[in-house]
Design a protein around this nucleic acid. Structure first.
Length: 287
DNA sequence: CTTCTTGTTACTGA
DNA sequence: ATCAGTAACAAGAA
């Protein structure tokens, strides 16, 4: 389940390999992945990739000489972007590997891009919740508007953060998962941020002191930056160790560590449901 | 066989 | 309006 650090990792890898390259053809293996857009393939044919941007967990491709056409890619939970060079070897992976995607394209490949230089880009998505969508300037602005500021690059103003928390009648877990409030955190990094800040996920947002809110914002920013630096977190099957993993996985302090001792105090980490999501926390360290 | 999982949106009812 | 809860989406694991 890619969150901001995973999407950012993919963005950088793709940008380095794809900038300036021209799309030769697009094969759509599953209509739903492009939301039934019949013009998708023809609209992209012949375009040269200029930039790859990101807002929250959404990737935004732009093209040379086209200022009113953008490709939005959302990976949702199981979406992956894989690059294969002309020799057939995988150059960059966006997501974990599973036993099914040793070769590409494979049965989870929903959309396939062939570039003029022989590079191939595969959009794989086991559960087909992710999407690729073409939009114009207006649609892009509307999409961007749906995201709040990101915590990790100084763009998030503390006064905004604190006043929104104070006005909210929700708990911290629900607030931090809300992409319109703060963009980029998902289930993993919300739990990790709350643990590091020593705050319980069920804590009422409006009950935070300014010092606690400062701590939360600082820890969220730190977690995201560290995870980006480590190439993201791969959380998939605990059993399959053959898959390629993001290096942040081993750094997780509470996520998926239920039943294990808290790295700080040794109390057993619990898992329960908060705001509808599986939530991991230390009942002793987080108040 | 059933149940659960996940990110996000849409909907319902309080 | 605001929030909690839940269904939906799809596929697979347990």
């Amino acid at each position: 389940m890619p969150e901001l650090p995973e999407v950012e990792t993919v963005r950088i890898q793709l940008f380095l390999r794809l900038k300036g390259k021209t799309i030769d053809s697009v094969k759509i293996h599953h209509d739903k992945s492009v939301r039934g857009d019949r013009r998708f393939a023809t609209a992209l044919k012949g375009l040269r990739i200029d930039d790859i941007d990101r807002v929250g967990k959404l990737l935004i491709f732009s093209f040379e000489g086209k200022n009113d056409l953008f490709l939005l890619v959302h990976l949702k939970m199981t979406g992956q972007l894989f690059l294969i060079d002309k020799s057939g070897s995988r150059q960059a992976a966006g997501g974990h590997e599973t036993k099914h995607d040793s070769t590409l394209p494979n049965r989870h490949t929903r959309v396939e891009f062939d570039l003029k230089d022989g590079t191939k880009l595969c959009f794989n998505d086991q559960r087909i919740f992710g999407y690729l969508k073409l939009t114009d300037k207006k649609g892009l602005a509307a999409a961007k508007d749906r995201f709040g500021p990101e915590p990790h690059q100084g763009a998030l103003d503390f006064d905004y953060f604190f006043s929104r928390l104070q006005k909210s009648g929700r708990n911290l877990k629900a607030m931090l998962l809300d992409q319109t409030f703060v963009a980029g955190l998902g289930n993993i990094y919300v739990d990790e941020s709350l643990f590091r800040a020593g705050l319980a996920p069920t804590r009422a947002a409006r009950s935070l002191t300014a010092a606690e809110a400062k701590r939360l914002l600082r820890e969220a920013a730190k977690v995201l930056k560290e995870a980006i630096r480590h190439g993201g977190t791969t959380f998939q099957s605990f059993k399959d160790s053959t898959g390629k993993k993001g290096n942040y996985t081993g750094k997780l302090k509470v996520f998926a560590r239920q039943g294990l001792p808290c790295p700080r105090c040794g109390h057993i980490i619990l898992k329960s449901k908060v705001a509808g999501r599986g939530t991991h926390y230390c009942p002793q360290c987080q108040k």
